[in-house]
Design a protein around this nucleic acid. Structure first.
Lengths: 248, 248
DNA sequence: ATCATAGTCGTCTGGCTGACGATAAACAGC
DNA sequence: GCTGTTTATCGTCAGCCAGACGACTATGAT
């Protein structure tokens, strides 16, 4: 049989699904949208959609991200232009034959990290998109809070990726505004890991790691108390030695 | 338009490609097969194939692995039965619209780590499958040693995944026979990272990490010199603190 | 003025790593 | 048997780093 014969191989639909994470009010939150049509009509799900016929996977994920949130992807090449930038990376691919009851769908999940946003938007319908703390979906109690399809599993994998990746990379800065304080960065770590960190040791660690933070010269009193120095993310992407996540 | 309408979304072919790595003669080697038909006829490529209509992605990868190498996947659930077991995990998904000149193909690449094998087999044709040091394909000199499609990039990503993952996990034992010595494990690290490690510090580190190695009681003189204790992989999968890869 | 809040700098101690000396147990060759 | 070679294993020591925590600073609120 010829390799060009369409009957020689099965046909799949390919989608991208997005785990969009942010930190709001000291808590790690994920973006979910309400499904308007079957299957799983009315249930919450991860944003996503079909990949177009001539579209790259990363481009499809970036397109879905801007459609759902208005966020642009922060391209490492186009540096310094991170006005409303988010970090976007491929997470994993989910292809269980039964994962979509309609047909065979392979979903290439992506992980997006964004600073806190004013409000979600989904075609202007505020009721159909919202941020929720990730614990809402990670409970072991099965159905309560479960997302459509296998999206609970995808979300869990995305959260785990974020939690481990901020250990050894500067990715936590993707949750911050372009200028931020050491305290704000610490609250990001605390929210993502769900632990309390010692402000003094954290300060020593992040300011002592070359290339992690560069001071902008400004200060702020956003959080009350003594004014804090403002920083931008430095060029370093890999932290060595890494940030240590406290045991248990 | 109905979500069931096949014209509402594009159709893709989905493949799995395998980065199969092993350590032979102190060198990290990858399995490649020679393509028998166009495109890229005669060029070396990663083993792989189409996912079947009702087949899970991991199952397809495991099927391709056993077809190409005879290796069974070492299922963490079916412990202790690692006679000819390999480690298999999803690596990443590659979906550039132009990556296959014939049609739109999305490939879900997987990474397999295996102990040294007697010989590759590809339908009995020894000429069409072989192990080669990964440096053969990672050279910057463009075409020389380049694999078909985007397989050079996939291989590079797989090697990088293996190199980083043995830092913080017990995955290096997947390159070893069921029973191995500390020296053999050290030579795995040296081959994968391409560096020399201090035998004394390495010994202290791996024997001092709880759950990494469990002594079997036996000894061996496989490598000449003083007999070495034999170990099996312990239950620990995550190493904390990690093995440190030497700088530069 | 006093307190509360948050940020920043120091000190100390224990654990871990890298460098490297020393010993142990096998084999090869004389 | 003795010696040299090879590999494994144990020990020592200094330096770095993280956790624990004291102290001080600079703002706003009462």
């Amino acid at each position: 049989m010829s390799p060009y014969d369409p009957s020689a191989y099965p046909s799949f639909a390919v989608t991208v699904d997005l785990v969009v994470l942010t930190v709001r009010r000291h808590s790690l939150c994920a973006l979910t949208v309400r499904r308007g049509e079957p299957p799983f009509q009315g249930r919450w799900a991860l944003p996503g959609g079909f990949v177009k016929a001539d579209e790259d996977l990363a481009a499809a994920a970036a397109r879905e991200l801007v459609e759902e949130t208005g966020l642009c992807v922060h391209d490492p090449a186009a540096s310094e232009a991170q006005g409303n930038g988010a970090h976007l990376e491929q997470l994993a691919t989910y292809g269980d034959p039964q994962r979509d009851p309609r047909m065979r769908v392979v979903s290439v999940a992506h992980l997006a990290l964004a600073p806190d946003l004013p409000a979600p938007r989904a075609g202007g319908d505020a009721n159909s998109a919202r941020w929720s703390p990730v614990e809402t979906f990670l409970g072991k109690d099965g159905d309560q809070g479960a997302l459509a399809f296998d999206h609970s599993k995808i979300l869990e994998d995305g959260v785990e990726r974020a939690r481990s990746k901020i250990e050894y990379s500067s990715l936590a800065t993707a949750f911050c505004t372009p200028e931020f304080t050491v305290g704000e960065l610490r609250r990001v770590y605390e929210a993502v890991w769900g632990v309390a960190l010692d402000p003094r040791n954290f300060h020593r660690k992040v300011t002592g790691t070359p290339g992690f933070l560069v001071p902008t010269g400004g200060t702020t009193t956003r959080q009350g108390g003594r004014p804090a120095q403002l920083f931008r993310a430095g060029g370093a992407t890999l932290l060595n030695p890494p940030m240590l996540r406290p045991e248990v």
